[in-house]
């Protein structure tokens, strides 16, 4: 007993050291970016700004939030993230449950038909024409519907569903429960961790997505925040390409921001909300969700 717990102690110490090292390595780039976003643009270009802003400024953030329409863009992003993720998780989980059951007739054909789509993509032009016919162009639904199912996520969820002992389902059936009831009342509560993980993946996808907005919408009312910010950043770096002389006559104070620091501020403005939400999802990643149900 003693020897073992001594071993455990060594293991714990080792573990804490490794984890701390990983933590330092992973937080560093994020911290450097955060510091850069608070640094004066021109000064940042001289390099060496890592641990603390050398010339502190809020200009980068002022610039990001200069156009008040950004708040509407946040609204669009939040809406699509909430609606899109909820629909995605629900729909993907439903299909995954069906697919997880070995009893399902045609299962092997279905999975091949599904996986085939992971590898072959028709390209933008046919997709655009399809969306046009479906009336998805310039429509909020273009964010939600084409992303509501993913074969990859379905497979992940399916593999979790399969790990649930079949006897749980069988006994529910004997009790007279239908497939939908089993899915909703039995399976979903048991697999919260994977659903939380899928929700996180999909939520972050929605939060960061802008290509669909760029390609399939033209209305400002549908512009998500990432597209909004991407434009500010690219604009400030393209602007000097042809109008260089105009830039050089600007007063010195205008050089508070640079494309680099603006990019960092933008990254922070879009990442911060995810960082706030994460702890709420994290509670699903705790141990032992399964046990309660099997016993009960």
């Amino acid at each position: 007993m003693n020897i073992r717990s001594k071993g455990d102690k060594w293991f714990d110490t080792f573990n804490i050291i490794v984890m701390t090292a990983i933590m330092v390595l992973t937080i560093a780039p994020f911290w450097f970016a955060l510091v850069g976003s608070f640094n004066q643009g021109l000064d940042y270009m001289r390099g060496g700004v890592y641990f603390w802003p050398r010339t502190f400024t809020l200009s980068n953030y002022f610039s990001v939030f200069a156009d008040q329409t950004i708040f509407h863009a946040y609204f669009v992003t939040i809406s699509r993230t909430l609606a899109g993720t909820a629909l995605h998780v629900a729909f993907t989980a439903l299909v995954a449950y069906g697919m997880s059951r070995r009893a399902l007739a045609g299962r092997n054909v279905y999975i091949v038909v599904m996986m085939f789509t992971m590898f072959f993509y028709g390209g933008l032009v046919p997709t655009y024409l399809l969306y046009k016919d479906l009336g998805l162009l310039n429509n909020f639904l273009v964010y939600i519907i084409p992303t509501m199912f993913s074969v990859w996520d379905m497979i992940i969820v399916m593999s979790f569903f399969r790990s649930i002992p079949e006897q749980i389902i069988e006994s529910a059936k004997i009790d007279g429960a239908g497939e939908y009831r089993i899915f909703l009342q039995l399976i979903l509560p048991l697999t919260k961790p994977v659903l939380a993980a899928i929700a996180l993946f999909n939520g972050v996808y929605h939060w960061n997505a802008y290509t669909d907005a760029m390609l399939f919408t033209t209305k400002e009312a549908l512009e998500p925040v990432q597209l909004f910010l991407m434009r500010i950043v690219t604009d400030s770096s393209v602007a000097t390409k042809f109008g260089e002389q105009a830039a050089s006559v600007m007063p010195e104070e205008a050089k508070q921001i640079s494309p680099e620091t603006l990019k960092l501020a933008m990254m922070m403005a879009t990442t911060a909300p995810i960082l706030v939400i994460y702890p709420f999802l994290q509670k699903y990643f705790v141990k032992g969700v399964l046990i309660g149900s099997v016993k009960g």
Binding site: S59, F62, S63, A66, D67, I232, S236, M250, P251, E253, A254, I257
Partner: peptide, 10 residues
């Protein structure tokens, strides 16, 4: 423009 170049643009 010195205060906020993006505002000036708007």
């Amino acid at each position: 423009n010195a205060e906020d170049a993006n505002k000036a643009k708007l």
